[in-house]
Amino acid sequence: MAEFKASLSGAAPAPQLDAPLAALWWAAKGASKGGWDEAHKIVQDEPTADAAWVHAYLHRVEGDLGNAGYWYRKAGQPVAKDSAESEWERIASALLGSGSA
């Protein structure tokens, strides 16, 4: 997790990251730096549950809760009730296989 967070200071995610992690990396950059759009492009056509979870997170951050709910169901994840920051940490931990931040 520390290495992943440290990579956020770079200009692009590491090339070995899979699509859901790359999208999460871009999401951390924020909408003002084009991160949301780039993240959404990456996961919108990915068929995996992990990509659907990141997709749900993105729509939650955007404020489109109906669309987010659809993607949480596709991901097999409960609708997040905690802060967006906490959810980002939880998703990153799960995708990195570290269990917790």
Rank of each mutant, 00 (worst) to 15 (best):
A23P: 06
A6L: 09
A14L: 13
A19M: 08
W25M: 04
P13Y: 00
K33D: 12
P15V: 07
A31R: 15
K33G: 06
D18W: 00
Q16F: 08
W26H: 08
A23Q: 02
P20I: 02
A22C: 01
P15T: 07
W25A: 04
A19R: 13
A28W: 14
L8D: 12
D18C: 03
E3D: 11
P20T: 06
P13V: 08
A28P: 00
E3A: 11
W25V: 02
K33P: 05
G10Q: 14
S32R: 15
L24N: 01
K29E: 04
K5E: 15
K33F: 07
K33S: 11
L24W: 06
A6E: 10
L21I: 00
P15L: 10
P13N: 05
K33R: 14
A6F: 04
S32D: 14
L8N: 09
A22W: 00
A11H: 10
L24Y: 04
A6N: 10
W26N: 08
L21K: 06
F4V: 05
L24M: 11
S32K: 15
L24K: 02
A11R: 10
W26G: 03
A11Q: 12
A22T: 00
G10F: 03
D18I: 01
A12C: 02
F4M: 05
L8A: 11
L8K: 11
A27N: 05
S7L: 08
A6Y: 04
L8T: 13
A6M: 05
A11Y: 06
A12S: 13
L17F: 03
P13K: 03
P15S: 12
Q16T: 12
A22P: 01
W26S: 05
P13G: 02
A27F: 02
A6R: 10
K33M: 06
P15Y: 09
P20M: 06
A27M: 07
D18R: 11
A12Y: 10
A22D: 00
Q16R: 12
A28K: 14
Q16I: 06
G30W: 07
A22G: 02
W26Q: 07
W25T: 01
S32P: 02
A12D: 11
D18A: 07
L21S: 05
A14S: 11
G34A: 02
E3G: 09
K5W: 15
G34C: 00
G34P: 00
W26L: 03
E3S: 11
S7K: 04
P13L: 10
G34I: 01
G10N: 14
L21E: 00
A19F: 01
